[in-house]
Design a binder for these strands. Structure first.
Lengths: 201, 201
DNA sequence: ATCTGCCCATGACCGTTGTCATGGGTTCAG
DNA sequence: CTGAACCCATGACAACGGTCATGGGCAGAT
């Protein structure tokens, strides 16, 4: 019997996944959590073999959670679930110590077989996505550039960004200009979009 | 026995919801669809009492689908599901002829009880959300403003928008300026964000 | 010790964007 | 018929944004 923990911020999805998995005779959902903090609490109470964690979660997101679990509970295999298939997520998930990666658009059979494989110690690598992942180059942005670009994403004018980051407007514009160059886009907005897609911010 | 149709673009969520609903003795999931077009096809094959449709779907989205169903299949009750609780969705859903509205963060009991109520002919109105809905004012944007703002959302410069819409750059700027004024924001990007949040575009 | 890369800053140039005044066109309601 | 509310367009001004050259400070690497 494989003991599964489910972490997803949407109650309905969480329960529905639990219902789906409980249909399998060799799977047992032992805990359901709405965010990363609940997961750590749940791990203290239950023995868990496989943790199914959504990337998009409030407070402690799925990737940070995966990273944390790989250190505090290395015996728990982490299977990362995501709604959006951003190219960066795949790499980030494995860097964070996850054993598998699945898109929510995958057929349910893939999910259960992934859980069994991960439990057996395998890594789930979709060859097609692995290709895509090597193509995506590493984050070329510096810390400052990422920080400033993140603020720019919401449409804030340079002056406001400068105030938020405690820098001169000129410096902010330089950082943005660099980010725009590195992403080879035309303006801060497109740069922010691209950076987000690539998982750089 | 209430016959339920599920429409959600994410395979896993779709199947999981079906598993959840099939646990109820008086519910039967008769069809699962990935987009609006599959729904119309499925309705030709099965008798359906309640259609559970996600707003976010490719091709034919949930709201348009609800509108279409209310005309072609008025006997089918539509229950709209959404991941994001944008203030505009609630009103739009009922304007489109939906009988109920639920956020994916709702507990599963709410979903099954909503299905039963809707089947019985009731409308599902969360009083708290209804309040919120009257607060949200109607779309103040004109057709052109919406169209142009939608293009602006992706970060395209005015020149490109003008080309896309076959207008002069000056006119585009005027429309944008109007939209910015009506949303009382500082620039096109914030205007686009706000408009999207309010369900105006 | 020097080089490289990142950080911060300034000033200048020019293109883009937001605003405003103004004008002409349409359609629809009173 | 006359407003009212759209639509489209122009020209002009001020503010904002993206680029570049330049320069200084501070790390870690060779």
């Amino acid at each position: 019997m494989i003991r599964v923990l489910i972490a997803d911020d949407q109650h309905l999805v969480r329960s529905a996944l639990a219902a789906l998995l409980n249909l399998e005779v060799d799977l047992e959902v032992v805990a359901q959590c709405a965010d990363g903090d609940e997961v750590t609490a749940a791990l203290a109470l239950h023995k868990v073999d496989v943790a199914l964690v959504d990337i998009q979660m409030p407070r402690l997101d799925g990737l940070s959670l995966a990273q944390q679990l790989s250190q505090t509970h290395p015996e728990v295999k982490v299977l990362v679930l995501t709604t959006f298939d951003r190219p960066g997520y795949f790499r980030q998930a494995f860097e964070a110590g996850a054993s598998g990666f699945l898109v929510k658009d995958a057929p349910p059979e893939d999910l259960v077989s992934a859980i069994r494989k991960v439990y057996a110690g395998d890594k789930i690598i979709d060859p097609q996505r692995a290709m895509l992942s090597v193509e995506t180059q590493r984050n070329p942005l510096t810390d400052r550039e990422r920080e400033i670009l993140a603020h720019a994403a919401s449409g804030a004018p340079v002056s406001r960004i400068a105030a938020l980051v405690h820098l001169s407007v000129g410096t902010v514009r330089n950082h943005l200009s660099n980010a725009i160059g590195k992403t080879n886009t035309a303006n801060r907005i497109e740069a922010a979009r691209k950076a987000r897609e690539q998982g750089w911010i």
